[in-house]
Simulated assay, not measured.
Amino acid sequence: MTDEEMDRLVAGFLDCTLPKEEWTHSAHFAGALWLMLRRPHVQPERDMPGMIRRYNESVGGVNSDSSGYHETITQASLHMARRLLATLPADVTPAAAHAALMASPLGDKDWLFTYWTRDVLMASAARRAWVAPDLRALPA
């Protein structure tokens, strides 16, 4: 994904015009990294939950106990994205950061199951609020 493609993707996410089928695992991380690198006034841990909920609703989704926004996945993903960014040069571009992240274990959409059992992560409690990993702690 190029920087220009990330710009387009994030603009579509933010203005709720991104087609639903383009809001993929890769796109979620692209959006998070782009915001971290290009919008320092945005605090993704605080702001992305509302952004994701609004986007989900704009494409006909429902944010409920069984679908839509998932707090634990979002916060864990943001934590790991920040951790990866800390290992990259300060002047890294969003596209280069995204390529590095997608080449890491985080590129596998099932990476979370290294830290959580499926039952714990997929429970409505984890969707509504942060639930700590039950298999192993996230790296600091």
Rank of each mutant, 00 (worst) to 15 (best):
W23E: 01
R127W: 07
A86L: 12
R46Y: 12
R46S: 08
R53P: 00
V42G: 00
W130Y: 02
L85G: 01
L106Y: 10
A137V: 04
L9P: 02
G12I: 03
A99D: 15
T114E: 13
T72Q: 07
L37P: 10
R83T: 13
T72L: 04
T93S: 11
R83D: 12
D91V: 02
T74D: 12
Q75H: 10
F29K: 14
W34E: 00
A140M: 04
L78W: 13
W23S: 05
L106V: 11
A140V: 08
H28R: 10
R128V: 06
A123M: 04
A27D: 03
S104G: 15
A11S: 10
T24W: 06
G107T: 09
G12V: 00
D3E: 06
G68M: 03
D91T: 08
A27P: 07
L121F: 06
H25W: 02
A126R: 08
L121C: 03
V59R: 14
D110G: 14
V92I: 13
L35E: 06
A140G: 11
L85F: 10
L9R: 14
L33P: 05
W34I: 00
A100C: 07
W111N: 12
A129S: 08
R128D: 00
C16K: 13
R118M: 06
P44K: 00
G107V: 15
A96S: 11
T93K: 08
Y69N: 01
T24M: 02
A86Q: 14
E22A: 14
P19H: 06
S124A: 15
M48K: 02
W23P: 06
L138N: 05
P19I: 05
A126E: 00
C16I: 03
L33G: 01
F13W: 13
